[in-house]
Write a protein that binds this DNA or RNA. Structure first.
Lengths: 214, 214
DNA sequence: ACCTGAACACCGTTCAAGT
DNA sequence: ACCTGAACACCGTTCAAGT
């Protein structure tokens, strides 16, 4: 009903998640931060589940839209990098983006931005939705994996973990040990993956096999 | 301590998630299903968070390892399809795979299978970990998105959703409306994406630009 | 080693009531 | 339209005790 109040509540929930983790977001804690009784939230957010959905909408509202003057490659790359920045700014809430369908106006606008870039790439219109799902799945999955620790298990006991099993059972782990124990340059890896994904789009759009530039 | 009992508890939790959703998995409900008091679980699982981690280990233990006689492409494709089957069998628990680092012996074995295939593809060893993260991120992200509804918002109100915003704001959504409103063949889409991802691996491994077969 | 029972500090949500 | 307060049926986990 009162849109301004709703935003205030969702931002309080987001701030709470940033400061103390997603587990500490409860109707009671959010209400307290807003300075109100838990029940006073219900007319604005409906339920705890809806509160979490609302948080991802606020997240997407923060996402800058890439300059439409840019070429489609730069537009997709800019959007992908912005999503990764968003993940680092809100590591506890970001993984929610992968957990629920995107239905709000703001999320539709993000999808439209990807649609537009794919269309500009020269992709046949019937291929656009498939490639949008592929690109968004990769970017969201990568950024979420990075911030929730899926890529960096346990913090620096990579070797200990590997030694749970015998070298005979994990030959390639042992062959790659040098690179597995070394800190990874995540920025560089993300850029390399991004280039690979954009190459898929380019090829689906009918680039010459060698991969053309734009 | 007693490994057999631990497995029994984790399987009860998994069954509960399958039948009534992840939210209904509680220390109390799992204990009841095992026929014991909630506190009796603690020596075996440690905490609720550890219980959830244990569930994903059990999930991975269910995953069939592809025949090592197969070529690397078929091995990766078989593993990817098996993960998707797993997601459909355990839609509530599967998304946990993307939420936490993989540290158990069983999960290491899955990573090793991918490492092996990438290595056999002819990838330089320093590229193997990066491509493993890329492949697993895509496959887990896709399968999770499929089962948690990220790809199918709201069930059949795709048109209504689109009409929240004006056609002028969502030009490509409207141009692609025919394909967006049509039911998607997810099997076919997954296979197409898989082929694209395997092509990236092949190219990183030094395939001829046109893409060779194996 | 394995389990129970009572207790503590929390949850989300309903309902009736106030302004 | 917006908010409160009491209540209900739950949570995860600690602690002391039993065998």
């Amino acid at each position: 009903v009162n849109r301004e109040r709703q935003r205030q509540i969702l931002d309080a929930a987001l701030a709470l998640a940033d400061e103390r983790g997603l587990d500490s977001v409860s109707m009671r804690s959010v209400a307290q931060r807003v300075g109100v009784t838990p029940m006073a939230l219900y007319p604005f957010v409906g339920s705890k589940a809806a509160l979490l959905e609302g948080m991802v909408d606020r997240l997407l509202a923060e996402l800058p839209v890439p300059d439409p003057e840019l070429g489609w490659r730069e537009r997709l790359a800019t959007l992908a990098r912005a999503l990764r920045v968003l993940a680092r700014a809100h590591p506890s809430s970001f993984p929610l983006l992968l957990a629920r369908p995107a239905v709000s106006p703001d999320s539709l606008r993000v999808v439209e931005t990807i649609f537009q870039a794919l269309s500009d790439a020269g992709l046949p219109i019937d291929q656009v939705p498939r490639l949008e799902r592929m690109v968004s799945t990769f970017v969201l999955g990568y950024a979420a994996s990075e911030v929730n620790g899926r890529f960096s298990p346990g913090t620096l006991d990579t070797a200990a973990r590997r030694d749970q099993l015998s070298p005979a059972e994990l030959p390639v782990h042992h062959k790659a040990a040098f690179w597995l124990d070394r800190p990874v340059d995540w920025d560089a890896e993300f850029e390399a993956d991004l280039a690979d994904v954009l190459a898929i789009v380019g090829r689906a759009a009918g680039d010459s096999p060698g991969g053309g530039a734009v």
